[in-house]
Each structure stands twice: as C-alpha cells, then as structure tokens.
C-alpha cells in the first residue's frame, strides 16, 4: 500500500468479502498481466477486469471454497481469458464479451475436470518450500516474486548476466513444483481418508 493513502473501507456482508478478495488479488493479477500482455495497457486492463468480473458473478459459489481453491480458480480464468485474447489477436475475430453476448460470462464454467495440485497448496506451504531452496535459488526467486526483472535481480545479486538468473529461476521453479507436488498429494490422500 502506498504510504499516506488509506485503504478503502471494506463493507460487511458478501459484497465486503468480495471487495477484500479483489483488493488482495488485483495487484498480483495486474503485475502478471503486465508481463504477458506486453506494452498494451488496454489488453492488460481488459484481462484483469474480465477475470474479476467473472469472479464477482460466481461469488456466491466461490465464497464457500477454501482460499487455495479460489486462487486456483482465479488463475484458471486468467489463463483461459488470456488464451482467448491470444486467439482473438491471431484470428482477428472479435469474441470480446459486450452487451450483445453478455450471456457468455455465465455460460463457460471455469472448473477443472479434476482437482488440481494447486488447489491443495497453501501460501504457508510455498513459503516453507522456498525456505528449503539453496541460498542462490531462494534469493533469486524471492526477488523475482517481489516484481524484479532478471537484469535487476542480476544487479542486486552481483551476477554478471541476466541469463544466469533465468537459469536459477528455472531450477527454483522446478524444485518448488516437485516439493509442492508431494505436499499436495499428501493432502489429497488425507482428504480421501
């Protein structure tokens, strides 16, 4: 939060719950959308707005879900909408949702065919997994998650090349994915018992 700026008041009730959810997730969605949409600010805004609008329309269902499942759903919507955007740009056909086809917002369910690994992993578990990485990988991954680019991380870590940082991040992600996979499997088995 920017210093000196007050947080907007969050109302009680389900509207307030959604507001809290949106306030928490919007900055991260924007940061990711900025990276993948390139320099097109309107594409980035459209994407984030579309994702949050769908979350609002589905909120009655989503609000009963645990936090990891909600987050995984949000990313699924982001992924599907982003691919739609890519296909739209390729084919130059307009499948944008507007007043004439607003029913599409309700039609396509964003549920995965089976529960994903990511629905079973909490933020605490990720932090624990990151702490188990070796020093270089952990530091590079933490700086990356704080929004720094490869070149900026290289400068912070006194590394001559941004390519090295890319390799560290590649290994960090691979190890984290393996560690979180074990955790998710364990949790899934616990649920089934």
């Amino acid at each position: 939060m920017v210093p000196g700026r007050e947080e907007p008041p969050v109302r009680e009730g389900s509207g307030g719950e959604f507001a809290a959810f949106a306030i928490r997730h919007q900055p991260v969605l924007v940061a990711i959308a900025r990276n993948v949409c390139g320099k097109s600010a309107s594409d980035c805004d459209d994407l984030v707005q579309d994702v949050l609008l769908r979350a609002l329309l589905q909120w009655e269902r989503l609000k009963r879900w645990p936090e990891p499942a909600r987050r995984a759903w949000l990313v699924r919507v982001l992924h599907n909408r982003f691919l739609d955007q890519c296909r739209r740009q390729g084919a130059e056909t307009d499948r944008r949702v507007d007043l004439h086809n607003v029913h599409m917002l309700f039609e396509d369910p964003e549920d995965a065919p089976e529960p994903e690994q990511w629905e079973c992993v909490t933020e605490d578990e990720l932090r624990q997994a990151v702490a188990r990485l070796n020093e270089k990988l952990r530091q590079a991954f933490e700086l990356h998650a704080r929004g720094l680019r490869h070149a900026e991380i290289a400068r912070r870590m006194n590394t001559p090349s941004a390519g090295t940082v890319g390799t560290w991040l590649f290994h960090a992600r691979r190890r984290l994915k393996a560690m979180l996979h074990d955790t998710a499997e364990r949790r899934r088995q616990e649920r089934e018992r």
Binding site: R24, H25, A31, L78, W118, R127, V130, F141, A145, R173
Partner: peptide, 13 residues
Amino acid sequence: LLQLEMLARLALE
C-alpha cells in the same frame, strides 16, 4: 507456470 507465479507473488510479494 501461472499457478506457481500467482501463489509465489501472493505469498512473497
């Protein structure tokens, strides 16, 4: 990759 990115940013950013 997107799922891991979102989780990491929420946890660490």
